[in-house]
């Protein structure tokens, strides 16, 4: 870990301003991902702005019947919230499918959105990685890629976004609220928040330098049966091979987003029109244009089968 300076921010705008004042600064809240990456010198911020004591830890109703989740609400609190459990079950289930109880106690809503890939070549600083060191190449392409992306990949990067929570937020059409160093707020639809790797895999989100997430808002509840189905080699504490977040209505219509297959939570709204026809029809459109490697080609049929399992679960509980 390289030496760094540290300050504790008192308001969101101040935090954003402090981050701009110090090039290469990072925000820190729970630190469950950042600290690990700093120890490995994958992240080498010279300055940390601690946002952990900002008053962004509330979940409140919005004017249009949705929920506004403060950036610092912990994963544990968010998953346990009565309104979330009742109206946004897919989110609650996605969160408890991730990490461990200890990590969820510490991890925050904004931090979870910003967790970085688990590509093993990103984690090994001896290996080429365009995400870690732009322009150095990608050792994962042609290497061990079983966990890596099959959709939206580029010649520069085949990493996945590893999280669960954001996949549920994507299916719920959440929005990310931010503030910048001049105190201006803006709202970024979750669909636009995470980026595909393209030629700049080191730029992972739509956030500008210094821009701080203050909240995630959920639109008013959409009803339906909420499923989060996470497939992995062991029963707990593992990143998804694939995961499926689905909200299915009584008439057979529904929404689906997929985790573990791309550099962002993967959703193709146009594919959802096929939902009443079943998983095969949806998956064909959802996964059209897949570019798997030999190691991860199983993910394409696995998405279809996992969606089928989710739909079967809906039928069984109907």
């Amino acid at each position: 870990m390289k030496p760094f300076s540290y300050e504790r921010a008192t308001t969101p705008a101040e935090a954003a301003a402090a981050a701009v004042r110090h090039p290469g600064a990072k925000f820190i809240a729970g630190g469950t991902n950042l600290l690990d990456l700093m120890k490995l010198e994958i992240e080498t911020p010279q300055h940390l702005v601690d946002v952990g004591t900002l008053k962004l830890d509330r979940i409140e109703k919005t004017a249009n019947g949705g929920l506004r989740i403060g950036a610092l609400v912990t994963n544990t609190d968010l998953a346990a919230d009565q309104r979330v459990r009742r109206d946004y079950g897919v989110l609650s289930r996605a969160i408890v499918a991730g990490a461990s109880g200890q990590l969820r106690n510490k991890a925050t809503t904004a931090g979870n959105l910003l967790q970085r890939t688990r590509c093993p070549y990103f984690y090994d600083t001896n290996q080429a990685c365009n995400k870690r060191k732009p322009g150095s190449g990608c050792a994962a392409i042609g290497g061990f890629s079983r966990q890596l992306a099959v959709m939206g990949v580029s010649d520069a990067c085949i990493a996945t976004y590893p999280g669960d929570m954001a996949v549920a937020m994507r299916v719920l059409d959440a929005s990310v609220e931010t503030v910048n160093s001049t105190g201006q707020s803006r709202v970024i639809p979750i669909a636009d928040f995470h980026r595909l790797p393209g030629n700049t895999p080191h730029i992972e989100t739509a956030l500008a330098p210094g821009e701080l997430i203050t909240a995630v808002t959920l639109p008013k509840p959409i009803g339906g049966t909420h499923i989060y189905r996470k497939v992995r080699d062991r029963a707990s504490y593992a990143f998804a091979l694939v995961s499926v977040a689905a909200v299915i209505q009584k008439d057979g219509s529904g929404r689906v987003a997929v985790g573990g297959v791309a550099h962002k939570p993967w959703r193709v709204e146009a594919a959802e029109a096929a939902m009443p026809q079943g998983s095969k029809a949806v998956a064909a459109r959802l996964m059209a244009g897949a570019q798997p490697t030999r190691d991860n080609q199983f993910k394409v049929p696995l998405v279809e089968r996992t969606l089928a399992a989710a739909l079967a679960e809906v039928r069984a509980t109907a």
Binding site: R118, Y121, G143, F144, A238, F239
Partner: peptide, 13 residues
């Protein structure tokens, strides 16, 4: 390649 306990999975409870 998977030289840590996130990559090399052993059984959990």
């Amino acid at each position: 390649v998977n030289h840590d306990l996130a990559g090399y999975e052993v059984p959990v409870h």
